[in-house]
Amino acid sequence: MTTTFDAFGKDPALLEALAPRLDALLDQWFRVALEGAEHLPAGGRALLVANHGGALPWDAVVLIAALARAGRQVRPLVEDGVMTAPFLGTFLNRVGCVRASQDNATRLLDRGEACLVFPEGMLGLAKTWRRRHQLQRFGRGGFVRLALRTDTPLLPVAVVGAEETAPLLGRIEALGRLFADGLPYLPITPTFPWLGPLGLLPLPARWHIRIGAPIDARAVVRDEGDAVAVNDLAGVVRDRIQRDVVDLVARRGSAWW
């Protein structure tokens, strides 16, 4: 047996085995359209910043697969509530996700990897259908500080389709713990929990992804200790992604057909 895992738990053999199915999922089910792949650096560290949504973090999986086809392996940094969930957290870890923390991100960037962060974190996943395509608060600027400290280019990534794939209709906080230790709430979608595990399957929404031009954080924020400037840049990145999201939603037309 020659199975090798990378130091952060990614299982390349599993990814290889899943590739045909992921390709089918991306092409036939999600009909993913990717723009701006030319902005992806072929190698070396990069920090991709994306919006986050849907009852399940399908965006992490779709971005791994879509960007791998565009020539770059990315490591999504996923929030605790997801990474500590049974099965889900383990699966995401095997396909390349890592628990979001400054420490883990720094280690990955030092290895020359491309990290993908969702600064909205749980706020992004927890937003209900009514607020789809609206970016939530962008954390506390942690990703900007990370980029400044490690001198990593920031790439804004707009994703449309996650909310429609697993529309979050409501959350039942009281029942989260019943299903899994550490699950913050029980998500209610059109199919879950009504159809049981089948309800976790994704709806066939169309996905549009746009990678924006890289931003050199150090050119914008001179002093890492300037927390206001750090948050300003976080806001600028957020606004750019929000604008792209609105644009992609308009361009996509119907989410389903």
């Binding site: 130091a7 952060f8 500590t84 890592v98 883990n104």
Partner: peptide, 9 residues
């Protein structure tokens, strides 16, 4: 200690 919030290393 083995903790959910441990860093990877």
């Amino acid at each position: 200690g083995a903790r959910p919030d441990n860093p990877a290393y």
